[in-house]
Design a protein around this nucleic acid. Structure first.
Length: 318
DNA sequence: GGTCGGTCTACAT
DNA sequence: TAGACCGACC
């Protein structure tokens, strides 16, 4: 889900660029996006168990498109669920099962296009699908990696250590992880992407944007994102992106912001909010990723003398 | 004015 | 499923 409202707020620095702009570069790609979109081409087949590899074709078509423009893709797959995020999976599975049953019922009545709508809703990217894509990638010598946990952190790591020059995804979270160049909305017909560069953050200012990032460090930007609500921590009710930005501009740090909110007493701040904020920050900073150079698990960013303990490891992955 | 929940829609062929 | 969009509500 990413950071609600962040991409629209970054509109002033979004650049639509032709793929040739990235010629000679390696772009790390979130495989989930392609697999998920590829489902639309074959939702009925997947739901009814009919063998299909259309979703593989869909992804490979994009791989070839990038290569045609002399971009080397580096495909990143999700791994296991992060301890920090466990919990939402069960209800989703139930919802999917219901759509599958409804789809089957409609199909039995011959209402095939109605059935297809249900099949699309029950479709899920499975490890088996990821494996099929991996086989196709291998056959064409495309680099890929399976993240120990979340693809987002792994993508950020590849860019950080220089194995990728940018990230192709649909998720604004990548900017919170610290990525320098994030590409969104690949248009295969026009061969374009929407590019957002971290170095342009300073140009985000009132009144052309809802928020101002002028003079902000990564710490403050990340604080705003987490404060406004992210995958690791829901926001304090009533605080969205703009309020988070305003509060941080005024009070500088999250500690101060929370202190002021408690003093005012208008918002209901969860009692352990600061602690949970800290944990969310750890996920964005130090989530466990795989280093293809040293061939071992590492933290996204090194822990340089920062306080660290077993509880953190349990949260960001081991 | 800003948040938030609801609804619509693209996703691909 | 997620993002964009819109209207209700504080």
């Amino acid at each position: 889900m990413g950071i609600a409202g962040l991409l629209p707020a970054l509109k002033p620095i979004q650049l639509t660029r032709h793929l040739s702009h990235f010629s000679g570069q390696t772009i790390a790609v979130d495989a989930y996006v392609w697999l998920h979109k590829g489902i639309y081409a074959c939702a009925t087949d997947l739901a009814t168990g009919k063998p299909t590899h259309k979703y593989v074709d869909y992804a490979m078509h994009r791989v070839r498109l990038l290569r045609y423009h002399n971009i080397e893709p580096y495909i990143v797959f999700d791994g296991g669920p992060l301890p920090a995020k466990r919990g939402t999976e069960v209800s989703r599975k139930q919802a999917r099962d219901e759509y599958l049953a409804r789809g089957n019922a409609l199909a039995a009545q011959g209402r095939h296009s109605d059935a297809r709508e249900c099949y699309v809703k029950c479709a899920d990217v499975t490890p088996q699908m990821a494996y099929q894509l991996i086989k196709a990638l291998r056959a064409e010598n495309v680099s890929y990696i399976v993240a120990p946990y979340e693809a987002d952190a792994q993508l950020a790591y590849l860019e950080r250590i220089g194995l990728a020059d940018g990230i192709l995804t649909e998720d604004s979270d990548l900017l919170v992880y610290g990525c320098r160049t994030v590409l969104f909305k690949l248009d295969t017909n026009a061969a374009t992407v929407v590019s957002v560069s971290r170095k342009d953050f300073g140009a985000i200012a009132f009144p052309s944007s809802e928020i101002s990032l002028v003079g902000w460090s990564d710490v403050q930007f990340r604080a705003m994102a987490i404060l406004s609500g992210c995958d690791y921590l829901p926001s304090i009710p009533g605080i969205g992106l703009k309020t988070a930005c305003t509060l941080l501009r005024k009070w500088k740090t999250v500690n101060q912001v929370v202190k002021v909110l408690l003093l005012e007493g208008k918002k209901s701040v969860p009692k352990d909010y600061l602690k949970r904020f800290e944990m969310a920050e750890k996920c964005f900073l130090h989530q466990r990723v795989y280093c293809p150079l040293s061939e071992q698990l590492v933290h996204l960013a090194d822990i340089n003398g920062e306080e660290w303990n077993d509880e953190y490891d349990a949260y960001v992955g081991r």
